[in-house]
Amino acid sequence: MKIAIPVENNSMDASVCFSFGRAPYFLIYDTEKNENRFLDNSAIASQGGAGIKAAQKIADTGVEVLLTPRCGENAAEVFKNAEIKLYKTINSSVEDNLKAFIEGKLQLLGDIHPGFHQHGGN
C-alpha cells in the first residue's frame, strides 16, 4: 500500500507540513517495498486551487491513504472521488505517523476546513 504525507523537506527526518495544498513536498511511502520517494509540489506556486492540483498529483501516484494534519474541502472532494482515505496526523514526525497508521492508531480526518481561497479577503 502507498501512503502520502505532506512534508516540509525531501528527507525522512522532515516535519509533517501543516498545510496540505501548499506543502513543499509529498512523501510517498510504499509499505510493501519499504520504499520512499518525494514529490515536488508544483501546486505551491498556484494563485488558487492549490489543493485541487496537489490532490490530483497525489491521486496520480496511486496512493490509497493520505496522512495530513488538515485538508481543504476542494482537495477532499478530489480524494473522495479518487477513493483515497484521509487520516489525521498525531504530531510532526513522519516516522511516528507511519508507525501509528500501520498499527491502526490513526483516526480518519473528520474536520474538513472550507479552504482559504480567494486571497483571504481583498
Binding site: A43, S46, Q47, G48, G49, A50, I52, K53, A55, Q56, A59, N74, E77, V78, N81, A82, E83, H117
Partner: peptide, 23 residues
C-alpha cells in the same frame, strides 16, 4: 483541460473530469 486551467478548477479522477464551479 486540466493542464490548461491556471486556476486549477478541473481535476481528472477515475476517468471522470471534476469541475469546481467556485474556482
Amino acid at each position: 483541460c486540466v493542464d490548461f486551467c491556471k486556476f486549477n478548477a478541473l481535476a481528472y479522477i477515475k476517468n471522470n473530469v471534476i469541475v469546481f464551479d467556485e474556482v
